[in-house]
Simulated scan of single mutants.
Amino acid sequence: MNYLVNCSLLFSERPLLERPAAAHAAGFDAVEFWWPWPHDPVPGDAEVDTFVRAVRDAGVQLVGLNFFAGDLAGPDCGVLSIPARAQQFRDNVDVAVGIGEQLGASAFNALYGNRVEDVPPELQDALARENLGLAADAAAGIGATVLVEAVSGPKPYPLRTADDAAEVVEAVRVAGHPNVGFLMDLFHLANNADDLDVAIAKHTDITAHVQIADWPGRGEPGSGQLDLDRHLADLTARGYDGWVGLEYVPTTDTETSLAGLRLTTERSDR
């Protein structure tokens, strides 16, 4: 397994643009981010250039980046399946892929939108598949993959289980977009009471990225009840050889939490 740091959750003690360098100082050569501008799908060129420079100057690779998904700390959990907001997603695609092209990103997480009362679910799902295909076509131009994940929490997000997300992945692939994969977030699946052993057995073949945190609490590995070493070993035995993103909320400061981890293989060398 090869580990990287999610700099949207870890190193939150520091300003966002200082986090890639902090990750490198902690021994990681790769990072991922949520969309850095949660209220702006199309930031100005100067803002984009500053972000790109911060990652590049830190000496780390940006492996994963979320497409614009709204304010994840607020009411949002994605916009691509919401008709009133889908244009924000479309406007963002070229910007996100452009950042990824500059920094070598290989994966873009496309979060589904919450269910909205004034739109039938089947219409939201059709819009989601259309926009995922659009994003996949753009990502294919730089050899990257678009990710679909199940998410937990109280928001009316429709993809709750590995099966839910896998069904969307397969539908978009069948429509002619093979570079769409499953983001298997073990915390979110556990938080939704999904069976991790079953999810891994059924869906490793379409898994393109993995994220981990312990459960309950979303703290660092070892702070909860999940046997993450066993689950990651199972993924490896079934053929997964991609990245594992550390996407947790430290129970102490980030450096202390990372120092206490016993990662079973390389941190980020690939």
Results as ranks from 00 to 15, higher is better:
M1S: 14
Y3P: 12
Y3F: 15
Y3N: 05
L4C: 10
S8T: 06
L9I: 09
L9H: 12
E13W: 01
R14Y: 13
R19I: 13
R19E: 13
P20L: 09
A21H: 04
A22V: 00
A23R: 12
A25H: 13
A26S: 10
G27P: 02
G27W: 08
F28E: 09
A30W: 00
A30P: 01
V31Y: 02
V31F: 00
E32V: 02
W34Y: 12
P36L: 05
W37L: 05
W37G: 05
E47A: 14
D49Y: 06
R53F: 05
G59D: 04
L72D: 11
A73G: 15
G74L: 08
G74E: 03
P75W: 14
D76C: 09
D76K: 15
G78T: 06
A86T: 13
A86H: 07
A86M: 11
F89E: 10
D91C: 12
D91N: 08
V95Q: 06
G100C: 10
E101A: 15
Q102M: 13
S106W: 05
S106G: 13
S106Q: 13
F108W: 12
N109V: 13
A110C: 04
Y112K: 06
G113D: 03
N114D: 06
R115H: 12
D118Y: 00
V119I: 14
P120N: 03
P120M: 05
E122C: 08
D125W: 03
G133F: 14
G133W: 15
A138C: 01
A144M: 01
T145P: 01
L147I: 04
V148P: 00
V148A: 01
A150I: 07
V151M: 08
S152R: 10
P156L: 11
P158N: 13
L159N: 09
T161A: 04
T161S: 15
A162T: 08
D164Q: 02
A165L: 02
E167Y: 02
V168F: 00
V169L: 08
V174R: 09
N179Q: 14
V180N: 05
G181T: 03
F182G: 10
L183F: 06
D185Q: 06
L186W: 11
F187W: 15
L189G: 07
A190W: 02
N192C: 12
N192S: 03
D195G: 05
D195C: 09
D195S: 10
I200C: 04
I200K: 13
I200Y: 04
T204D: 14
D205W: 01
I206W: 07
I206V: 10
A208L: 07
H209R: 09
H209W: 07
V210Q: 03
I212H: 14
I212K: 15
W215M: 07
P216K: 03
R218L: 03
R218Y: 07
P221L: 00
G224A: 07
Q225I: 06
Q225S: 15
Q225N: 10
L228G: 08
R230V: 11
D234H: 15
A237K: 10
R238I: 09
G239W: 07
Y240K: 14
G242K: 10
G242L: 07
V244L: 08
G245K: 03
G245D: 09
L246D: 12
T252I: 01
T254D: 06
S257F: 12
S257P: 04
L258G: 11
A259W: 09
T264A: 14
T264Q: 04
T264R: 07
T265L: 12
T265C: 11
E266A: 15
E266V: 14
R267W: 10
R267K: 08
S268M: 01
D269F: 05
D269Y: 11
